[in-house]
Design a protein around this nucleic acid. Structure first.
Length: 156
DNA sequence: GCCAACGTTGGC
DNA sequence: GCCAACGTTGGC
């Protein structure tokens, strides 16, 4: 099992939005960065755990947990001319972009904010704490995942 | 709203 | 294949 951090702007798609989806899950569409694509396509597996991070808000924070619940498959939005994620260079035979299904797990009692992450001795070297780090899909070390969950669920 | 970081594009 | 221009992300 692996651990990930997924970024989402809460104004666009929040953890509550995921919770309110049919079946409390949705496919993670719209990733249009090759490094992030490769993580989704090649490395994500059902059962992997997800830190759900709200970006572009104040304060940015890991607000809860989700789970990967499918293998990767081609992102349907890349074939849809009506979608903002349409990619005319994608074909059904050779899709460029992939998704996985992500299922809501829980809201944290205490959101783990970016300032908290930067202050914490264990978490300070997380990718998300690094200046200029824009990657929207990030691998997370097991120790980091465990520590974020501790803070988020008020375990001392 | 500013701007640093960084990915992408396209001319050469 | 280099690199300048441009666009986007996202913290502040």
């Amino acid at each position: 099992m692996k651990y990930w951090l997924l970024k989402s702007e809460p104004d666009v798609f929040s953890l509550t939005d995921l919770e309110n989806c049919e079946g409390r899950k949705d496919y993670w569409s719209g990733v249009r960065n090759y490094q992030a694509r490769n993580f989704i396509r090649d490395d994500m597996k059902p059962g992997d755990r997800v830190l759900f991070y709200h970006s572009n808000c104040n304060p940015p924070a890991v607000v809860g947990l989700a789970n990967i619940v499918s293998e990767s498959y081609p992102d349907p939005t890349q074939f849809d001319p009506q979608s903002e994620y349409f990619d005319e260079k994608s074909t059904r035979d050779q899709p460029r972009w992939y998704v996985v299904d992500v299922e809501f797990a829980e809201h944290f009692v205490t959101p783990v904010t970016l300032p908290m992450i930067k202050e914490d001795a264990v978490l300070a070297d997380m990718l998300v704490a690094r200046k200029g780090q824009r990657l929207s899909v990030q691998p997370v070390e097991a120790a980091h995942f465990k520590r974020v969950v501790q803070l988020g669920t008020n375990i001392p």
